[in-house]
Structure formats: C-alpha cells, structure tokens
C-alpha cells in the first residue's frame, strides 16, 4: 500500500512538473519569437495601422509586461479555467479547445481500436506462416508501412476514394464515417510496426520452457498459441501501445490537417499560422496533459506485472 501511495505521489509530481515545463517553454519561446502577436493581429485586422496602434494593442493584451507576470496571470486564469479569447476569431478558447479535443480523441481512440485489431490479425498471421512466402510479403508490407509517411496515405486515400471513385465526400460526413478515413491512415504505421513486434514476441514465447511443458502435456499447438503465448506476448506490449496512443495524438496533427478535421493538431497549426497566442498556449497545455495521462496509464499495468512477478518470486 505504501508503495502504491509513493507511486501515485510521484506520478502527480511528474504530471505537475511536465505541465509547468511545457507551459513555461511555450511562453519563453513565444517571447523570443521573431513575430509579435500584436503586430500580426493588427496586420490581419486593420488595413492601415501605425506603431502607436500596435503599442496600444500590446498593452491591451498585456504583452508589454515582464514575462513572469504574464505567465503568472495566465496560470491564475488557467486555474479558473479561463484561457482568454482567441485573437483570431474572438471565440472562447476553452470551448474551442475542448471541441477540438473531442474530435481528436475520437480519431485517436478509433485509430487505437483499428490498430489493436490490426496488430492482432497481422501479427498472428505473420507468426502462423513464418518462413513462407506470405510472411515475406507481409514483412515487406510492414516495412513499407513504417517507412511511408502518414501524409502520403492520407493524400492518396483522398485522391483515390474521394476524387476518383467519389465513394465518400471529404467534408460533409457525420458520425463515425467522418473520422474513419483519418483513423485508418493514422493507424497504418502503428499496425506495421507493432505486428512485427508481436510476431517476434509470439515466436519467443513459443520457445519458452512453459510452452515446451504444455506440448509435453499433449496440448495442441493452437491451444498453446491462443491460451498461453499470445496473452504473454501481448502483456509485454501493452505499456508501449498505451504510450503510442498518446504520441499519435500529437502525430495526428498532419492527418487532421489533410482531412480538414478541426481536431487539436489542426487547431494548433491554425493558431500557428495566425499567431494566436492564447490558443497556442491552451492547446499545448491540453496536448501535454493528455500525453502525460497516457504515460501514466502505461505505467500502471507495468507496475502490476512487476508486483505480480515480485510476489511470485517471493512465494518461491
């Protein structure tokens, strides 16, 4: 129980530290950035503007204060869930970010689901026909899948299915059909990478002593595979898979952009193009929060496995 408490405590400290670091980085970088948000704003809104107008705007936005005070103000407001309004369209940042977060999460979770199924299928297929030609073909496909950029899949997907066949319209779908193409494109590289790993793990497990023992007991090969080898092989991959879900939230920026889905990554790139400071800070904060959350989730099963092993060893 004490171990559990220190574990939770350490995780919370790490979470706070990460969020603190990320936000301070985004403020620091914004400060030493060559483009000034106030100037960018006035260039966008007014056709003619003078230096004093920009200065006035800067004062309004609080950009002329020292960095620490700006940061302090932002943190105080963030605690009240007030992230200001967007400089670009005047919308409330929190609503915009939570909308975007919803879209991104649906894409990423859908992609995770597709990946889980895909990895299981392709990985076991790779193992089942190892050292035969389908395996060579599958391995070659997997290597290609890892080495080709996701934006290639996405743009080709649109070019083929939306432009040539007109099977789907890129903009006006609703429900799951809206997220499915993006999720598929996002999940290809994950499937390619992890199915190879799974095949390797299963092969390793099938050569372990316990598999030998099961064979001696007269269990069929498929029963050993399904009941013993695959669960063991999967258990080793769960933590890194959970971490990968977090990473794909960041990585989905490019795919979202191509499919014009206004998710988190899309919002970040948009706010970069418009130099929309409050939006940038808020989106980065949420991104970091989700990443750390995924990392923590990935640690929990690892802890349990370790504990199980320790208690097993202790009982022996």
């Amino acid at each position: 129980m004490r171990i559990f408490r220190t574990f939770t405590f350490r995780k919370i400290v790490e979470l706070i530290l990460t969020l603190f670091l990320v936000t301070i980085i985004s403020f620091l970088l914004m400060k030493i950035s060559p483009v000034d948000p106030a100037e960018a704003y006035s260039r966008r809104t007014f056709s003619v503007f003078g230096q004093e107008q920009v200065d006035q705007l800067r004062e309004q936005m609080g950009l002329n204060q020292p960095l620490l005070i700006q940061y302090g103000n932002w943190v105080r407001n963030a605690f009240h869930l007030d992230f200001g309004t967007s400089l670009f369209n005047g919308h409330d940042v929190l609503t915009a970010v939570s909308n975007a977060m919803g879209i991104s999460l649906s894409i990423v979770l859908l992609a995770a689901l597709i990946q889980a199924v895909g990895i299981l299928l392709v990985g076991s297929l790779c193992y089942l026909c190892h050292a035969r030609w389908p395996n060579i073909l599958l391995t070659a496909l997997c290597i290609a899948g890892v080495s080709l950029p996701p934006f290639f899949f996405a743009s080709t997907f649109i070019d083929i299915f939306a432009v040539n066949f007109r099977w789907l319209s890129v903009t006006s779908n609703s429900g799951i059909a809206r997220y499915l193409p993006a999720a598929i494109c996002l999940s290809i590289s994950g499937i390619a990478f992890y199915s190879q790993l799974l095949a390797k793990n299963i092969e390793h497990e099938m050569n372990e002593d316990y598999a030998m023992y099961a064979r001696c007991r007269g269990l069929s090969e498929s029963r050993i595979l399904i009941h013993h080898a695959v669960p063991h092989a999967l258990a080793g991959m769960v933590p890194s898979f959970l971490q990968m879900i977090g990473i794909s939230l960041a990585g989905s920026a490019i795919v979202e952009r191509i499919f014009s889905l206004p998710g988190l990554g899309y919002t970040i790139i948009d706010s970069v193009l418009y130099r929309d400071a409050p939006m940038i800070h808020a989106t980065i904060l949420f991104l970091a929060f989700f990443l750390v959350l995924c990392n923590t989730l990935a640690d929990i099963p690892q802890r349990f496995f370790q504990k199980g092993q320790e208690s097993k060893e202790a009982s022996v």
Binding site: L17, A250, I268, V292
Partner: peptide, 23 residues
C-alpha cells in the same frame, strides 16, 4: 523527476511546440 517530466513528451510534440512559437 525533471528528466522524466521532460522526456514524457514525445519528439513530435516538441516539434509542434517549437513550430507554434517560432513558425
């Protein structure tokens, strides 16, 4: 824990953060 906190964020996210601040 500082090192853990910093490496908790994947490289892609760093790229996004830097791009968003500097273009």
């Amino acid at each position: 824990s500082l090192l853990n906190a910093v490496t908790a964020i994947p490289p892609v996210a760093y790229l996004i953060i830097f791009i968003s601040a500097w273009g």
